[in-house]
Write a protein that binds this DNA or RNA. Structure first.
Length: 745
DNA sequence: ATATTATGCGCC
DNA sequence: AAAAGGCGCATAATAT
């Protein structure tokens, strides 16, 4: 028995969240629903502020259906809907039509974050009433929209017997999607991911506790550092610099480092083409009239001979040149530069004399760091501080006239930060995060930002993080089934050390000893060798070619190629798998029209590959490289993309299914009597906030469930996964000071 | 003045 | 003979 529902709410934005359900100003103005078999939709209307209404979910309901259902679920959770927890606890499931559409259509860009308005017509539904949308766009409050109009919009008009609007459209989409998903063998996969969606909805609802006092302390230190380093940097500027130098401008940085001309504007006199002189304003002055009829500004001339003004000097208004006119004029200032750039560092931007601006990113700064440029260190420090403060703390943006940065998302009354975890925004089915992005918080070895993420339970609580080890390598083993790779995974081989042994001709055991034992005399020399191997393997996993790897690791091309050959010989199944994906993509490719870099419409192709669980991946072709075009192939698929999507996407799928299982478990345990919550996920890890008293129990459960991927997927999808998915759990008082946690014997 | 594109950088 | 994947956010530069 399914129940379709949708809410129309007040839409105040706060902490970057639109129609924020955590904002006390907002409430549900109208609620519509339709139970399976109903001939009409039902609705309630609440024109007055009221945060206590909720959707009645009867005991016979087994599936909640919505469009972008996370929004509506968060509202029901904020209202404290007593029937929702019971629904989930008895195994109730959700179906988000926006998410299903994205998965059914292989995550193509047009299926990301799609709207009900665009989706409904594909399934026999109607488009929305424009009038309501128009009113919202004008800033009209939902409660001020006429009841009849709003209800028509939500559940259809009386003429439609109230079997229309958003609710009927959502139902039609849902029914069509079930059919489509069955045809494409995607039902189980979608259902697993829907549980993952329920899980991240709960994460958003719980939010992350922020130690605001700690954040303020830390920010004061950063601001002081920034002030000092900025002052130091400015000492490297010429004293007579005629314009404001901006160390944050790539153009300015390129010019001062590599040489170049800054064009700046200031007010200046200019020539008048007609007169051939400096352009001036016109003013009028009273001059004396002379005998000859001319005028003079100071020398009195003739007098009136009669009349009212008899005896007074004759005067006359005359036009005289006034102040010089000015206008904004281009000026140029040339920097000689400290060093020569590499030509391939050129960007698309140009300087004041149309010469290229060169990149000044950290990779390039790293390369030129040995060239004795006096301010590079300070510059790097300032850039890092600007980034850290502006992105992860808070700063006033003069242009936007508002504060920016992560801390603007923290609720003042309870210091909880409700982030967003998005399921329909990537081509690979990975999740993304925004408002704020909680998936790119600097690691502990880079900054202390994570120190501000603490437990909501105060001294009685702790934080925790559970990580899959080398998830993408494990997934590579699962997908390819390569015998040696799986064998190595079962033996918990350190792959980086294995590569070191292959390239250096030592044994694996020696590589482990020399690269990882800090007490071994060879450690200082061998640890960097392992780091290089690590870079190599990441780049290979992402499909990088030999030249790119050689470039970034500093290895010679021959050296890299030798490693690649050795790797392919060692794990031939990986190459076979990649070739299979490519073959399928080419076989399934269908033409479509798209604009090229110059805006010209051309025919490209889109091809597909389906994973063992039914997840569909798609790739589009691009303009082929020159050597292929010469041979008559106008477009081609990107080998790195084809290698990467299945691995990245399947890793993401495993984690999403698992956070669904974890959430189901937490629900069954009533969140350990409301003492433990899942609060975040970052691709291969999850964050936990719990009381210390339940910590060991929670972490043991989490680790067991996370490591159950082989059992779960083999059982549910008939897969034959025979490699472990090892999980490491860490815990501490904040997310920066974590230490290894181990289950008591 | 506002919208879009380019660059750079944080994470996995 | 061969192209390092996926995100979001801040800032500057450019277009409208």
């Amino acid at each position: 028995m399914y129940l379709v529902f949708d809410l129309e709410t007040e839409v105040h934005t706060s902490h970057k969240r639109k129609a924020n359900p955590f904002d006390q100003r907002n409430w549900v103005v109208a609620r519509g629903w339709k139970k399976q078999g109903d001939v009409r939709c039902s609705y309630t209307y609440h024109p007055e502020h009221d945060r206590t209404t909720y959707l009645q979910i009867d005991d016979d309901v087994t599936l909640l259906v919505g469009f972008n259902i996370k929004f509506d679920l968060l509202w029901e959770m904020c209202q404290g809907n007593p029937t929702l927890h019971a629904f989930f606890k008895r195994g109730g499931k959700i179906w988000d039509c926006q998410y299903a559409e994205y998965l059914i259509r292989a995550q193509v860009p047009s299926a990301q974050m799609c709207s009900l308005n665009d989706t409904a017509p594909k399934y026999g539904g109607t488009t929305k009433i424009d009038a309501v949308k128009a009113l919202w766009e004008q800033g009209v409050h939902t409660a001020d929209i006429h009841e009849d109009l709003l209800i028509d919009y939500l559940v259809g008009t009386e003429e439609e017997d109230r079997n229309g609007g958003d609710i009927r459209n959502t139902e039609l989409v849902f029914l069509g999607q079930i059919k489509k998903a069955l045809e494409q063998g995607q039902i189980k996969m979608i259902q697993d991911r829907m549980d993952g969606l329920a899980s991240t909805t709960d994460m958003e609802f719980r939010g992350i506790k922020v130690d605001v006092a700690e954040a303020k302390r830390r920010m004061a230190i950063l601001l002081k550092d920034l002030y000092e380093v900025s002052a130091e940097l400015d000492t490297y500027l010429p004293a007579d610099l005629p314009f404001d130098f901006n160390w944050g401008s790539g153009t300015h940085k390129s010019c001062i480092i590599f040489g170049g001309t800054i064009k700046y504007q200031k007010q200046a006199r200019y020539f008048d083409e007609k007169t051939g002189t400096w352009a001036r304003k016109q003013e009028t002055e009273v001059h004396y009239v002379q005998e000859d009829g001319s005028t003079h500004p100071t020398k009195p001339g003739v007098k009136y001979a009669g009349g009212k003004r008899k005896g007074e000097y004759k005067t006359k208004q005359v036009k005289v040149p006034g102040e010089y006119k000015t206008r904004y004029t281009d000026f140029f200032y040339e920097f000689k530069g400290y060093t020569k750039p590499n030509e391939d560092w050129a960007t698309k931007l140009v300087d004041g004399r149309e010469a290229p601006i060169y990149g000044t990113g950290s990779d390039i700064i790293e390369i030129i760091s040995s060239r004795n440029i006096p301010f590079l260190k300070a510059l790097g420090k300032k850039q890092a501080l600007d980034k850290e403060i502006g992105t992860y703390y808070v700063k006033y943006d003069e242009k936007k006239k508002e504060h920016v940065g992560m801390l603007t998302c923290v609720q003042p009354h309870d210091h909880i930060l409700h982030h967003s975890l998005n399921h329909t925004t990537t081509v690979t089915t990975r999740l993304s995060s925004n408002n704020p992005n909680m998936q790119n918080i600097p690691r502990g070895d880079k900054s202390e930002v994570k120190r501000m993420f603490i437990s909501r339970f105060g001294d009685e609580g702790c934080t925790g993080e559970a990580d899959y080890s080398q998830l993408e390598v494990v997934v590579q083993g699962v997908l390819s089934g390569d015998r040696q790779l799986c064998e190595d995974l079962r033996n918990r081989i350190d792959f980086h050390c294995k590569r070191v042994s292959a390239s250096r001709g030592c044994t694996y055991e020696e590589a482990v000893e020399w690269c990882k034992n800090e007490d071994n005399p060879k450690y200082p020399e061998w640890k960097p060798i392992r780091t290089k191997a690590k870079n190599f393997s990441f780049q290979r996993a992402y499909g990088a070619g030999a030249p790119a790897i050689a470039d970034s690791t500093g290895m010679s091309l021959d050296e890299v190629q030798a490693l690649i050959v050795a790797e392919e010989a060692l794990y031939p199944g990986v190459t076979t798998f990649n070739d299979g994906v490519e073959k399928t993509v080419l076989e399934t490719a269908e033409p479509f029209q798209a604009q090229d870099d110059n805006g010209v419409w051309k025919t490209y192709r889109r091809g597909y590959w389906v994973s063992p669980t039914g997840t569909r991946y798609s790739w589009r072709s691009y303009d082929a490289p020159a050597f292929m075009r010469k041979r008559g192939t106008p477009d081609s698929f990107s080998p790195p993309e084809m290698k990467n999507y299945p691995v990245q996407g399947t890793g993401g799928e495993f984690v999403q299914a698992i956070i669904g299982l974890l959430w189901r478990h937490f629900v069954q345990r009533d969140f350990y009597n409301n003492s433990a919550f899942l609060v975040n996920t970052v691709h291969d890890c999850i964050w936990i906030d719990c009381k210390k008293e339940v910590r060991d129990e929670v972490f043991a459960d989490v680790q067991r469930i996370m490591e159950s991927i082989p059992k779960y997927f083999n059982n549910r999808y008939g897969m034959q996964i025979d490699v472990p998915f090892p999980v490491e759990v860490e815990t501490g008082n904040n997310m920066n000071e974590l230490h290894h946690w181990k289950q008591a014997a």
